[in-house]
Design a protein around this nucleic acid. Structure first.
Lengths: 213, 213
DNA sequence: GCGCTATCTTGTCAGTGTCAAGTTTGAAAT
DNA sequence: ATTTCAAACTTGACACTGACAAGATAGCGC
């Protein structure tokens, strides 16, 4: 008789409904026009209902951001799964997944990386973002298994992160469209360009990646 | 008798006052908590006064963003002026100026690059942002005077831009502080790290930049 | 001196997030 | 089975926001 999933009572898991509604609002209106009341209305509850599950607008957006990080990781793992197993391909897959996610959910991406609306010390948010960072760090370390110099490791990590992150920002803000002529590229061409950009940063011995055209 | 600077009448150049007030509000409260009324109050005018000079909040922030791009360029030129004249040093100076500006005016930086509040097609904004882009493009082209392949030039440009921009975002969002241990770095060390990160992207013949420690 | 228009103020509106009260609901306790 | 009770949800209010409309003011051209 005891069912495993505790349903509050008459509504079906309102927290999840609110997160879904909030994300739809976010992707339709953008981060800067996001409204807590509109999200509540979309979930068919009163404007004060969200406060009982996520105390604040901050609380809701923190939970949504955490969800975002988990999906970012999923996007990267998806790319990795269908990439060649060598460490360069696996590393590039991380970047492609990063860009995929940013393009698919630009407002959520901004919420996660360029906003003060979520609380970064929120347990869920902090854990998820740390996991995403760790994944990137592992990918970079795997690219340079023999590197022992800590300063150089840091340089590698920060360069990689900066490139991936910067490229994602430039793409979703529309700034990369003109220089890269993204509107006339096939998906394969886009991937190849991102590949070339990412690997411009690394010269892995024995793996030259300079075939751009 | 005709004075060159037209003063509306009893106030001294309210548009300039409003821009100044808006920028102060911006840097004190951040972009997301920016309020047009608060800016007007800071300039000692009524809440509807700004509308007569900048029609919208969008109008005001577009003008402020344009001003930001001009100052970004100035920060880069400042670094270039005190850098060695060789093309690598000049290119790195562009990146250092970019980072300087982002750290000095994080909220303005976000307004310029990661916000939909300004109108990017606003003449002033568009012109200033284009000038900043052109400056970066020139810097990258100067790094590779012999490169003729258009695709490779694009790769160089986008990689450089991504690195600089991504690094700036990571720094001002606080994400780079821990990996780079920015809190224990002297300004010289910080510059050296940024230099190493920027030049990780480029291998200019005859100019090896690999002295990181 | 007389208008007249740009400038600026006051007032109002719909909308926002948050808090303080109520109201309903389902389940636990007796 | 009835009572009790806390969690879930609603309603209402408050201060605040950006935008618009209508009125006041002040300096310049005539």
């Amino acid at each position: 008789m005891a069912m495993t999933a505790k349903q509050p009572y008459h509504k079906g898991d309102l927290p999840a409904l609110l997160l879904k509604a909030a994300e739809e609002e976010l992707s339709e209106n953008g981060l800067e026009r996001f409204s807590l009341r509109a999200a509540a209305k979309r979930a068919n509850v009163s404007h004060a209902a969200p406060a009982h599950h996520f105390k604040d607008m901050t609380g809701l957006l923190s939970a949504l951001g955490a969800e975002g990080y988990r999906r970012l990781i999923a996007a990267q793992e998806h790319r990795q799964a269908q990439a060649a197993p060598d460490r360069v391909s696996q590393f590039v897959a991380l970047g492609l997944g990063y860009a995929d996610f940013a393009e698919a959910h630009p407002a959520l991406f901004q919420l996660m990386f360029a906003s003060e609306k979520p609380d970064r010390s929120h347990p869920d948010f902090a854990e998820a973002s740390l996991a995403a960072f760790a994944k990137l760090q592992d990918g970079v370390n795997a690219l340079y298994p023999d590197e022992t110099d800590e300063a150089r490791r840091t340089t590698m990590l920060m360069t990689s992160w900066s490139v991936v992150h910067g490229l994602a920002e430039l793409i979703i803000s529309g700034r990369a469209a003109a220089p890269m002529q993204l509107d006339v590229r096939t998906p394969e061409e886009r991937d190849a360009m991102i590949h070339a950009i990412l690997m411009r940063v690394h010269e892995v011995k024995g793996q030259q990646t300079e075939r751009s055209s």
